[in-house]
Amino acid sequence: MIKNNNIFYYLYKFSISILSFVFLFFILNFQSSLSFFSIFEISTPSLISIGIYLCIVRFNINPSNTILFLTGFLHDIMNGNNIGTTSIFLLLFRYFISSIILEKISEKDQEEWIYFTIIFILSFCFVFLFNLIINFSIPEFSPIFFHIGITLILFPIINISIDFFSFVSRLIKN
C-alpha cells in the first residue's frame, strides 16, 4: 500500500515538474516573441522572473532546480545566447527568493514589489557582470534599463490583475 502511494506521489511530482517546465518554457518563448511589438523593440520584459516569483511566493508552486536549468538551457539554444546564461539567471533568482524572502521574512505580510525589485536586480546584476567579463566590452545601457524598468512596472500590474481575477471568481462563487 505504502509502495503504491509512493509511486503515485512520484508520478504526481513528475507531472507537476513536466507542467511547470511547459509553463516556464512557454513564458520564456512568449517573452522573446514580444519583441515583434514595436513597444518592445529595445528590449522585452522579463516575464519569466515575474512568473517564477508569483509561482513560489503566491501560489506555493516550487519549480525544481533541474526544470529551471533545462528551461534556461533550451531557451539559450533557441535564442542563440551563451549557453547557461539564462539558466544562471533563473537559478540565482530562485536562490535569492529562498534566501531573502522565505527564510528571513516568512509568514509576514510585506511589500511584494520591493522584494521582487531587490531579487530581480540582484540576479540581473550578477548575470550582467558575468556577461561583461565574458564579452570583455560594455554594451549600450538603454536596453538594459528598459528591460529592468518595464519588468518592474509590469510586476504590480500582473499582481493586481491576479488579485482582481481572484476577487471576481470569489464573488461569482458566493
Binding site: Q31, S32, S33, L34, S35, F36, F40, S43, T44, M78, N79, G80, N81, N82, T85, V127, N131, P143, I144, H147
Partner: peptide, 8 residues
C-alpha cells in the same frame, strides 16, 4: 525567431 534579447 525574433531578434530580442538583452545579451544576444
Amino acid at each position: 525567431t525574433a531578434p530580442g534579447g538583452v545579451f544576444a
